[in-house]
Each structure stands twice: as structure tokens, then as C-alpha cells.
Write a protein that binds this DNA or RNA. Structure first.
Lengths: 351, 351
DNA sequence: TATATAATTGTAATCGATTGCACAGTGTGT
DNA sequence: ACACACTGTGCAATCGATTACAATTATATA
């Protein structure tokens, strides 16, 4: 039998093809390609040369099946078209690429069913690990999730944590972030600082709130329940919340929002009511979304270094893969950065 | 032999396990699970029941190896943390998920070597298709790319096209976009319309420019070479270009930029020189980045419906997969939408 | 020269699922 | 009663690579 090789040849060359050509075994070829020390340098060289000649490419699927390693990692986020998540994924991808891993993206749209389904299909696809930002506070009661815990593949939480024993997480110190933002507002001379929160069943939002509260307390400012509004993370919600705040008999002179979007809504509402920012009311957002910097009235915000968070997540994953059996629980907490911009710079309005 | 099943059991159940338990062959199990009509309903039911009982999950890797279908699709973009690409990927992922495909993300950072490397590793990973936004105008001369063309897997270009025979693309009509933007500016009463372009070796930027030119011509406005500046897509570049324009003895009364970022730079520069927007100079950007809407002086822009573009790309891919042998070349061209905002609304400044 | 030892390579099973072909059992037609 | 068709399963090869173990050859040692 004779193979005619043309550029239109679609069949991939396998180690068997190489073996046949060199009159050796596929086993030897495999070993040579893997630089197994038991193979003589002569054959190694020969095999390598022939492999490139024949345009050999390793079939990762076959390899994965045999080794139980797919070199694919699943990443689950609520949505990828959010600058924060996209940046995290960027970090993850860049770091993992260097280790030969590929990133499979899944979106939940904050839907618990989707979350479970994604976990399931990722497991079927035999990913070597799952990195996720949970969108479900009751995830530990989820069946798919339990299944996941029984697997020996690493599971990591980034961004959103939830204290589940044995699970590593990479997050920022939300308490510290809330504290820093609030302290900054106090330093600017604000006395009645309100807080736009988001669902505090999530630890991140609860922690931001607690940091806010602690800063008030440390500065002997009484905590006023009426200044805290739990809202959604979007412009409209920010407007609504701000309307409420402005109706108080004693309205706030500062707003610390757990979301840049509601912060923007707040600013729009304040402006529409003719209230000067930052002179009358200072505003600080959260996440350092690109637009906060671009605005003419740039918005102070908390930077979460998402790319770095992604890279760190990837690194922890790699570590866990390496110490196979010992999945030591790691809780990495990154320090958030307060970015001070015009919306909260009374003292130096040129900023 | 006796298997004790515990929740800590890590080994996955295979069709062989099911077969053993039911005293039938793995072949039968496989057929039953695949609803092969040659299997009696009785055994089908039995197998299915036992499968769920035993927590069976299909190993996609094994399946992929056998069928030559991994149900993974590679997506290559320059960077994922750009709203435009992230939105496209969102669309792709959502659409493909419904067909059982997973999306593997790769970033090139506009680096030609990375582009080639990504193609290579994706092929090794046996993806069923590659969807990409090319970052390399000479891609058709690239070795990896040639290799890719010889495979039978579908290759699709989105966003950026390059006329390569046999390759389908999903793009927007950049000519029309350039035309619309320019016509709009003319309708607003602008007479000297400048254009901030980007590297016109790329078809998208060339087409936008050509659309611009055509609109001028159709309105009997002379084309003035000095009003066209080729620049980069960032704020600083936009400022620099605008400085140059303002130094002309006869400066423009409108700027149509091929990028929202340089449009923003232009606006910043105009403002810093005390020039009123839109009264003295109108500005239109490109891409409808989120910030264009959020600015107080909101920026008119061209919306490329990236999510829709992603979905369309995914749909074309699915089509091509289905008509296996006939990869009919498809050139899908989506119509861009002009979003008119304050930066170019002389007539109705309330907008 | 005979033999222990090290260096290479081959054999064959394995990962988990799919599928062409063979075969047994039942049913139908003449 | 016999040939033929049809159903439902089993057998075994296959996808491509890896690897424990066996076998062979080459080298070193006595």
C-alpha cells in the first residue's frame, strides 16, 4: 500500500505512521517524542526529525483520554461582557496558556440552573479544574456541586467567596475596601456617609458594608441605618436609591456605592437635582470600571486588579495540580486599591 | 468482586460498569444510551434507569476520540477584555451552548506569533472549528494558517475580514457605517468633516474611510486629504491627532473617528481648547463602547451589535458543521446602526 | 569465554465509547 | 417443512497515545 501525500491530505499523521516508516514500534515513537531517557539519542533524533517531516501533531484527545488530563480548564462567570470578568479571564488565560492549558468559558447569567448545568457539562468534558465566580449563595446545597466536590479535580472560587471547607478562593479584601473608601470620605470631611449596598447575602457585599461600618465606628461617627440602601448594580437603581436618600430630612454628604453603575446613577440624580459633586456630595464607586476614568467628572472607585486576580487564580490552580493529592486549602486575599478621582476630591479638585 | 459505592468514590462509572451489572455488552449499553432503534425498548429503558442509578456520565473525551468531534470550538481574539470582543464571545458562547459546544478562548494581543501558536494548539486540541478575528494582515502567508486551511474543520472570520477564497466571514458593513456617520454629520450642517482613521491596511478601516469619502462626494463636498489622519485607537492618539487638525488654517467642524477611544481623546482636546461640542465641532465615534453612553456629553457612535455578530458567527459555524462536505463560502454582512447622541446633535441638543 | 548488568526496544493492555459484521432466535410465506 | 426476513445482541476492531512488563542486545566484569 502506498500513501500519496498531498497538501490536501486531511488525515493526521499518528505515531503509528512514524513507526511504520522507521520500522519501529509506536511505543518507541511515543517514548522518543516524550524524551524518555530510556530511548537512545540516535532514535530520539531520528524520530523527532521524521515527526516534523511528516507534519506530526500530537492528538491531545487521545493523550487526554489515556492520562485522564485534558489540559482544559473550565471558567464559570455570570457574564463575560463585563469588564471585571473579562479582565479576570484575560489574566487566567494568559497565565494558563504558559502552562499548556486552555480555557473553556461558561456563562450563567446569574441563573442557578445554568450554573449547575455548566458544572455538569464541564465535568463531562473532563476538564482538569473549574474556576468559578459563584452566582448562587446556596451553591453548596446543589447536587451538581456536590458531585463536583467528590471529584478529585481542583475547584477554585474567585471574586465571590463562600466559606466552604476545603475550597480555595482568590478574592479581594472587601472589608478593607469598604473601610478604605469610607475612611477616604471621612478624610475629605464628610460627616453623613451613606452606603449603596447590594444583596448582602453575598459575602462580598456584606464585607464591604461591614468595612464601611467599622470605619464609621473607628471615627466615632454614629451608624445610621437609614443611610444604607440595598439596591441593584445598575444606573437606574442608583438613581432611585439616591432619590430616597435626598428625601431624608437629613440627607447624606457622601455616597459610597458597592457598584460603579449605581454610583453613576447616583451622580446623574445628584446633578439633575442641582447638587454639586464633590462640593456638596462626594461619591465613591466600586470596581474601577473603565468609564469611571473616562467621565469628565471622573468617579473615584475601588480597583480590584482583576487581571492580577485572574493570574493568581491560575497560579493557585497550577499549584494544586502539582501537589496532586494534597489539595491544601488556600485563601488568597488581594488588597484592593482606592483610586481617588474628581467625584470625591474636595480638597484637591484639580484631580 | 464487590463495589462499595460511597460518596467519596472518584472513579467515574463507564458503560462497561453498566454492562457488567446488567449482564450485557458495552456495545448494547452504548447503543441503548444513543437511542439506537435496533435496541429493544425494554433494554433501553433498563439501561437508562441503571445509568442514572449509577450516576453515569458520558466521557466526552472518549467519544471525541472515536468520533473525531470534540465539541469544542476555538475562538481567537486579540484581547478579551475589550467590550467589543467580550460581547461577541458572549454571543458565540450563548448560541453554541445550545448546540452542545464549548468555547475555548485564545488571545493574541495582536501578536502574529501568538496568533500562529494559538491556531496550532487549538488544532492539537482537536477543536471542531476556529472562529477568529484576524490580527495579522498577512495571515494568508502564515504556515500555521495554511495548515489550518488544509483541515476539514470550518474556519470563520468575524469582525475583521480578509478576502481569502473559501473562507466565510461575519462582519458589519464598514463602508455603510462610514457613510452613515458622515451623512449624519453633513445633515447636522457640518461642512469640513475630518476623519480619524486607523491602519488602512485592514479592510475594516479602509472601508470606513471609503464610506466617509463616498458620502462627501455624494453631497458635493470636496475631499480634503489634510482632514484625514491615520492614528491609533486610544485616547492619547486622539488628542494628538486633534491638535494637528486644530492647527490647520482651516480647521474642521466635525470629526468622524474610527474608534471611540480616539473620539474621546478628540473631545478632551477640543474641550481643553475651549471649543464647544457639538456647536462648533461635532464628534462621532465607532464601536459604541459602554462609556460613550455614560458620559455627560454622550458620544455618538456606530453600534456593531457585537452580541448579534457573535450569535451569527456561531450559527454559520453550526450550518457548516451540518453540511459536512459542502463548506459553502458565506459572507454575512450585518448592518451597523448609527447611535446619535449629544456629541453630534446640534439640532436637538436635548438628546 | 562465560555471565552479570545495563541499555534499548517490543508486546500488549489500557483509557471509554462507537460501530460494522456476525449470529441466534422468532416470525412469515409457500 | 424449508427458505428467508427481521430483531436484538454480542464480538472485536478502532480512535491515538501511554506504560508496565517482557525480551533482546550490547557492554562490562570476572
Amino acid at each position: 500500500m502506498r500513501y500519496i501525500k498531498t497538501s490536501r491530505m486531511t488525515k493526521k499523521t499518528t505515531i503509528y505512521d512514524i513507526a511504520k516508516k522507521l520500522n519501529i514500534t509506536a511505543a518507541t515513537v511515543s517514548r522518543a517524542l516524550n524524551k524518555n531517557p530510556k530511548i537512545s539519542d540516535a532514535t530520539k533524533e531520528l524520530v523527532l526529525k521524521t515527526a516534523t517531516e511528516m507534519n506530526y501533531e500530537q492528538n491531545k484527545l487521545a493523550q487526554a483520554l489515556k492520562n485522564g488530563k485534558s489540559y482544559n480548564v473550565g471558567v464559570i462567570v455570570s457574564r463575560i461582557d463585563s469588564n471585571f470578568f473579562a479582565s479576570i479571564i484575560r489574566g487566567i488565560e494568559e497565565e494558563l496558556f504558559n502552562h499548556g492549558y486552555h480555557v473553556i468559558i461558561c456563562q450563567t447569567n446569574n441563573n442557578e440552573k445554568m450554573e449547575a448545568e455548566n458544572i455538569n457539562t464541564l465535568l463531562n468534558a473532563q476538564v482538569d479544574g473549574i474556576l468559578m465566580s459563584i452566582s448562587n449563595i446556596n451553591i453548596d446545597k446543589n447536587i451538581m456541586f456536590k458531585k463536583l466536590l467528590n471529584k478529585k479535580i481542583p475547584l477554585l472560587f474567585f471574586d465571590r467567596k463562600k466559606s466552604i471547607p476545603g475550597i480555595s478562593s482568590i478574592t479581594i479584601d472587601d472589608f478593607s475596601a469598604g473601610y478604605k473608601a469610607t475612611q477616604h470620605l471621612i478624610d475629605e470631611g464628610c460627616k453623613r456617609i451613606s452606603h449603596l449596598s447590594v444583596d448582602r447575602n453575598f459575602e462580598i457585599f456584606r464585607d464591604r458594608f461591614l468595612g464601611y461600618k467599622q470605619a464609621l465606628s473607628d471615627n466615632n461617627i454614629p451608624f445610621d441605618e437609614s443611610l444604607v440602601i440595598e439596591t441593584k448594580s445598575n444606573i437606574e437603581a442608583g438613581k432611585e436609591a439616591t432619590k430616597k436618600l435626598l428625601k431624608l430630612q437629613n440627607p447624606p454628604d457622601a455616597i459610597f456605592s458597592s457598584s460603579d453603575f449605581s454610583a453613576l446613577g447616583a451622580i446623574q440624580e445628584l446633578k439633575s437635582q442641582g447638587i454639586k459633586i464633590p462640593q456638596e456630595v462626594c461619591v465613591v464607586g466600586f470596581s474601577n470600571e473603565p468609564f469611571t476614568k473616562f467621565m469628565e467628572l471622573s468617579i473615584s472607585s475601588i480597583d480590584q486588579s482583576p487581571v492580577e486576580m485572574g493570574k493568581t487564580t491560575a497560579r493557585v490552580f497550577i499549584q494544586q495540580i502539582k501537589n496532586k493529592e494534597k489539595h491544601v486549602e488556600q485563601k488568597v486575599v488581594l488588597e484592593p486599591k482606592l483610586i481617588i478621582r474628581k467625584s470625591s476630591s474636595k480638597q484637591n479638585p484639580s484631580k
